[in-house]
Amino acid sequence: MDIGKRLQDLRKAHGLSQRELAARAGLTNGTVSLIEQNKTSPSVASLKSLLDAIPMSIAEFFATIEEAEPTKYFYTVDEFTEIAPQSGQTAVSLRQLGNASSHTLQILDETYPPDADTGPELLTHAGEEAGIVTEGEIEVTVGDQIRVLRAGEGYLFDSRLPHRFRNTGKTPCRIISACTPPTF
């Protein structure tokens, strides 16, 4: 998927200039321009801020409309949708099961390499989210609480609370998570 082109098309469809979108998202005009030209990949938090300004969820942004196809219940590993368009050694991978825009539940397979995080800005969105760490460890910030969770431990919180995920460990961290409704 061409992230920059998709963002540009959405911005224009909503009658926003790059400057207006940047102001609403709390980013610079230059950042929006670089993202639209695919010269930089947005952090999860930056993309979330841009889409909140439109408004649209990350799930909707990456959804492919395939309504003509029969109902699908099972997915192979290569049928998940990557919704964290980053690259590099510390890029977060958020792989979504199915098309969350057609369900009331969003399931993600998340991978955080060492030193990876969701971005310096804390995330907020409507709904609740929960997850279980299956490998490694992750530092989770929710409101004013910070906790390092290890394999087998989990979290559950109101997603309207500011939150952030950061791998401060030396090995990759993997989380299976859920968000309802799918507003992320």
Rank of each mutant, 00 (worst) to 15 (best):
E139D: 05
A84W: 03
S46T: 14
L105R: 07
R150M: 08
F184Q: 08
I35F: 05
G169L: 12
T81A: 13
H103P: 03
K39W: 09
T28E: 03
P85M: 15
P120G: 11
T171S: 12
G88Q: 10
H103V: 09
G119R: 07
A23H: 11
L156H: 11
D144V: 08
I132D: 00
K72D: 09
E79W: 04
I3M: 08
R24E: 08
I35N: 05
E129H: 09
T64K: 15
I3D: 10
R166N: 12
R6M: 13
A68Q: 12
T118D: 00
P182E: 06
A91H: 09
K48A: 11
F157N: 08
D2M: 00
F74G: 06
R160I: 01
T134G: 08
D144C: 01
P172C: 07
R11P: 12
A130G: 15
I54P: 07
R174Y: 07
P181E: 06
Y75P: 01
S159K: 12
E69L: 12
V77F: 13
D144T: 08
Y155A: 02
I65W: 04
P172S: 13
H163I: 05
A116D: 03
G131V: 07
S46L: 08
E60T: 03
T71S: 09
E139Q: 08
P172N: 12
F74Q: 07
G98A: 05
Q37L: 10
A25T: 02
P85E: 00
K12H: 12
Q18R: 01
A130D: 04
L149N: 03
G143L: 09
R164V: 09
R150S: 15
F184T: 00
E36R: 10
F165L: 05
R95W: 10
G169T: 08
I176A: 08
L156Y: 15
A126K: 11
T141F: 04
L149R: 11
R6H: 11
L161F: 10
H163K: 04
L123M: 03
S87C: 05
I54Q: 11
T81V: 14
A100C: 09
D158F: 01
P162R: 01
G169E: 01
T118Q: 05
L156M: 07
S177T: 15
S57D: 00
L51Y: 00
E110N: 12
A84K: 03
T81H: 07
I146E: 15
L16G: 02
I132A: 03
Q145T: 06
F62Q: 01
I132C: 02
F165P: 11
T104C: 02
A59S: 15
F62K: 07
D78N: 13
E67F: 08
G127L: 10
L50D: 14
K170P: 00
V92N: 02
E66R: 15
E139V: 14
G30C: 01
K72Q: 12
L94K: 13
V133S: 02
S87N: 05
R160M: 15
T104R: 05
